[in-house]
Amino acid sequence: MTARINLSHISTIVAAAIAVFCFIGFALAQDKPIRVRGEIVAVDGPMMTVKSRDGKDLKIKLADNVSVAGIVPMNIGDIKPNSYIGVSAMPQPDGSQRALHVHIFPEAMRGVAEGFGPWDVRPQSTMTNATVAETVAGVDGQTITVKYKDGEKKIIVPKEAPIVTYVPGSMADLKPGAKIFIVAAIPQADGTFTAARVNVGKDGLTPPM
Results as ranks from 00 to 15, higher is better:
residue 4 R to V: 06
residue 4 R to T: 09
residue 4 R to S: 09
residue 4 R to Y: 10
residue 7 L to N: 11
residue 12 T to K: 15
residue 13 I to Q: 08
residue 18 I to D: 12
residue 18 I to N: 02
residue 19 A to Y: 10
residue 19 A to N: 12
residue 19 A to W: 05
residue 21 F to I: 13
residue 23 F to G: 03
residue 25 G to A: 02
residue 30 Q to F: 12
residue 30 Q to K: 12
residue 34 I to W: 05
residue 36 V to A: 04
residue 37 R to S: 11
residue 39 E to A: 13
residue 39 E to W: 00
residue 44 D to V: 04
residue 45 G to M: 12
residue 46 P to N: 11
residue 46 P to K: 05
residue 48 M to P: 01
residue 50 V to D: 07
residue 52 S to N: 10
residue 53 R to E: 11
residue 54 D to Y: 00
residue 57 D to N: 12
residue 61 K to M: 11
residue 63 A to S: 15
residue 71 I to C: 11
residue 72 V to Q: 11
residue 73 P to L: 08
residue 77 G to I: 00
residue 77 G to H: 09
residue 81 P to K: 10
residue 82 N to S: 11
residue 82 N to W: 00
residue 82 N to I: 00
residue 83 S to F: 06
residue 85 I to W: 02
residue 85 I to M: 04
residue 90 M to Y: 00
residue 92 Q to A: 13
residue 94 D to K: 06
residue 95 G to T: 07
residue 97 Q to E: 13
residue 98 R to T: 12
residue 102 V to W: 06
residue 103 H to T: 13
residue 103 H to F: 15
residue 104 I to E: 08
residue 105 F to H: 01
residue 108 A to Y: 04
residue 108 A to P: 02
residue 108 A to V: 06
residue 109 M to N: 02
residue 109 M to S: 14
residue 110 R to V: 12
residue 111 G to F: 06
residue 111 G to K: 01
residue 112 V to K: 00
residue 113 A to N: 08
residue 114 E to D: 05
residue 114 E to R: 01
residue 117 G to A: 01
residue 118 P to Y: 03
residue 121 V to Y: 00
residue 124 Q to V: 07
residue 125 S to H: 03
residue 134 E to K: 15
residue 135 T to I: 15
residue 136 V to R: 15
residue 140 D to T: 14
residue 140 D to A: 14
residue 142 Q to N: 09
residue 143 T to M: 10
residue 143 T to I: 07
residue 146 V to S: 01
residue 154 K to S: 15
residue 159 K to S: 07
residue 165 T to M: 15
residue 168 P to G: 10
residue 174 L to H: 09
residue 176 P to V: 09
residue 179 K to F: 10
residue 179 K to R: 14
residue 179 K to W: 08
residue 181 F to Q: 14
residue 189 A to S: 13
residue 191 G to L: 06
residue 198 V to P: 08
residue 200 V to N: 12
residue 200 V to R: 13
residue 201 G to Y: 03
residue 205 L to F: 09
residue 207 P to H: 07
residue 208 P to C: 03
residue 209 M to E: 06
